[in-house]
């Protein structure tokens, strides 16, 4: 029974990781931007929900839209300021690594200046509660945050799969020129995709705010974890990123429970090294040429 318990907890966290990584993978897929600022945007979203909870007692789950919108607007601003003009450069993808790294440092510094690097967690009433199904107990915070994450991912997937704009986003991520040639305003699609990616970061932040303790500099750790998920799934593949997140989260929980919690984070990095050696394009990677 214990193993089932660990797997369920791992899955709940896995959905949260999947949501965290979905925006990153969308932005990379469409624009080839390696957004190292994604985790700090997640933390920004967490701060929005945290303060809404502290100041107005608003449940972090209810503040998901507010966090998503705030971070999306921040994203649009960033995109207009630093990405759009450089999109035609040949070394664009490489350049975005530096640009986003710098951006991450600036936002990190700003948040630390405003709120200090102290650990925080939003603590709605259910945060300390749990339900029991037979012998298995599930903390409500993790259950809720996992389920809402799953819901958002499903909505995103349906949007990308069936809506006209969603198909245009996928077409653009396959080939910008081809998309332009069927009449897609590629610049606009990029802007909206970036905003959606940031909104996903913001909503993930909101859902993380009562599950993990967070502080501005924590994003450095998440960069590494999220990048390993993106690489495992195959750069730019949403399905791959979600499956990667679920698998690694469960494995990491199992290692933490049965071996030592000290090793559970290590799982992500070992997986990253292994996948790069065995299958560099990831589980669901599309060849980009």
């Amino acid at each position: 029974m214990e193993i089932l318990q660990v797997i369920i907890l791992g899955l709940c966290l896995g959905f949260v990781y999947a949501l965290m990584v979905s925006g990153l993978t969308l932005i990379f897929g469409v624009m080839r931007i390696v957004n190292l600022a994604h985790p700090i945007l997640i933390i920004s979203g967490a701060f929005v929900s945290y303060w809404l909870f502290i100041l107005f007692g608003l449940d972090p789950i209810l503040s998901v839209p507010a966090a998503a919108l705030t971070v999306a607007l921040l994203g649009v601003l960033l995109y207009k300021l630093i990405f759009e003009k450089n999109a035609a450069q040949q070394t664009y993808s490489e350049m975005t690594v530096l640009l986003t790294f710098g951006t991450a440092m600036v936002i990190d510094g700003l948040l630390a200046f405003l709120f200090h690097n102290t650990q925080r967690t939003a603590s709605p009433a259910y945060a300390t509660d749990a339900i029991f199904i037979g012998d298995i107990f599930i903390p409500l915070a993790q259950l809720y945050s996992g389920m809402v994450s799953l819901g958002i991912i499903v909505v995103l997937a349906l949007f990308l799969k069936y809506s006209e704009f969603g198909i245009a986003i996928r077409a653009t991520s396959q080939n910008r020129t081809s998309a332009e040639l069927v009449g897609v305003n590629v610049k606009f699609v990029c802007l909206i995709s970036f905003a959606i990616g940031c909104a996903l970061a913001g909503s993930a932040g909101s859902l993380v705010s009562f599950v993990f303790s967070f502080f501005p500099s924590r994003h450095w750790e998440w960069i590494a974890i999220l990048m390993s998920l993106v690489v495992l799934g195959g750069m730019g593949s949403l399905t791959g990123a979600v499956i990667g997140a679920l698998v690694l989260s469960v494995v990491s929980s199992l290692v933490g429970a049965f071996y030592s919690p000290a090793w559970s984070t290590m799982v992500f990095f070992l997986a990253l090294f292994l996948i790069l050696i065995i299958r560099p394009r990831g589980l669901f990677g599309i060849r980009t040429d």
């Binding site: 198909i167 040639l181 069927v182 897609v184 599309i286």
Partner: peptide
Amino acid sequence: CFLPQERAIFPNLTVAENLRMCAYS
């Protein structure tokens, strides 16, 4: 309408999605 030498279709989209993209404009 311009049909370039290669990649005039979206290879990873389904045929139905390709046709929808053709009519996107």
